[in-house]
Amino acid sequence: MSGLLEFWPPEASSYGRHVDLVLASMSVLTLALSAPVFVLIVAFAVKYHRGKAADRKHPANRNVWLEVSWAVVPFVLTFLLYIWATQLFSGLYRPPADTLDIAVVGKQWMWKFQHPTGQREIDELHVPIGRPVRLTMTSEDVIHSLFIPALRMKRDVLPGRYVIMWFEADTPGTYRLACAEFCGTDHSRMTGRFIAQSPTDYAQWLEQAGSNQTLAVEGEKLFRQFGCSGCHGPAATVHAPSLAGLYGRHVPLESGEVVLADDQYIRDSILLPQSQIAAGYPHIMPTFQNVLSEDQVLKLVAYIKSLATEEGRR
């Protein structure tokens, strides 16, 4: 892992190389458009600093095409650069379907990562190269910001909300990760390691790290422990929505709106059940705010997502 101060951090993904290329192109374009202006200012200041008599009897000849070109050419070049950068940025919000999903919780002052097969890490993140990875992130306290310089990626992590960041590392190595948002007295110590491995090494690491249960299995235990199955289980007598096949479906609400049952909707339904009430159901869902930790909520979300997968196989 490189030192804390890096003038040009190493690149661990094709996205990082594209970002560097955009930055270099913008720097070159800025220099090409601005340098002639400053050079001519200096040249004219030197040449005409004593003044010079000018014949103003006749208007100066104008070259319309020259005047148009020095407005149109810079506009076209900067607009093309804008399109390029916008396409690159928008790709951050379109993760592919076959991602490896890792849950992330930021808290003062550490990063907690949990893999779908149950392995947990603190201030370290192991990922395989050549496979898209999606981080579902939230915060337990204040605003944090996960920054991985080698990927050229940074994303704010907010309390009470899930945010997504996805990437595909392609260069094995150990790189730095940090919090890029001032989050308290020990903010500067909220750092860690991003470890990109070959698929074989990553599989070996998963085996060595060990885990008895996946996130979904742990979520199922919590589902029963906190009595969720009493209302949402298949044998429940209470009039409550069935969770089988819920994830990814559109849900009509009492207010007349229709929302997508994604990670955020499920989280809010657990912690803020009165905010979005499903149409046709009574207001009897209790809140689990200040009862469940963000880690536990992520496990419950993973379990409910697994119910949708099982329903699809039937």
Rank of each mutant, 00 (worst) to 15 (best):
W109E: 03
T30N: 13
A35Q: 14
L151P: 03
L206Q: 05
R314N: 13
F7S: 13
Y202G: 00
Y93Q: 10
V142E: 06
L215S: 02
L40G: 06
R120S: 14
N63A: 09
T200H: 00
E294S: 12
A236R: 01
P286M: 01
S139Q: 02
S229Y: 10
S198H: 01
K305E: 09
D201V: 00
D55I: 10
E124K: 00
Q264T: 11
S90L: 15
G210F: 10
L77S: 08
Y202V: 01
V217P: 07
A261G: 05
E254H: 12
Q225Y: 13
R161P: 12
A60Y: 11
G16C: 05
A216D: 00
T117M: 15
M137P: 04
D263H: 04
S188D: 13
Y265G: 04
L243A: 00
L158E: 05
E310W: 07
F44E: 11
A196K: 00
V68T: 13
H187M: 10
S188F: 14
P252Q: 03
N63H: 08
E124P: 02
A216F: 00
G130N: 08
I270Q: 09
N290K: 14
G227P: 06
V297K: 01
A54R: 15
G248P: 00
V238C: 02
L31Q: 11
T99S: 04
S293F: 04
A32S: 05
A54T: 14
K47S: 14
E6G: 04
D268E: 10
I41D: 07
E311D: 15
S293G: 09
V297H: 05
D295A: 13
Q197A: 09
E218A: 08
R267V: 03
T117S: 15
I277P: 06
P116Q: 11
G312F: 14
V217E: 08
L222W: 03
R224W: 08
E311K: 15
V157F: 05
S198V: 01
A85T: 04
T191A: 14
V133P: 03
T214D: 07
R193T: 11
P273N: 11
W109Q: 01
D55F: 09
V291I: 15
V68D: 10
G130D: 02
T309D: 13
F147V: 05
E220H: 08
G219L: 01
L23V: 10
L260V: 13
L300A: 06
A278D: 07
M110L: 14
V163T: 15
G51V: 03
T287D: 09
Q87D: 14
A71H: 03
R161M: 15
V19F: 04
P74M: 05
M285Y: 02
A103Y: 04
H187R: 09
T30M: 13
L151T: 07
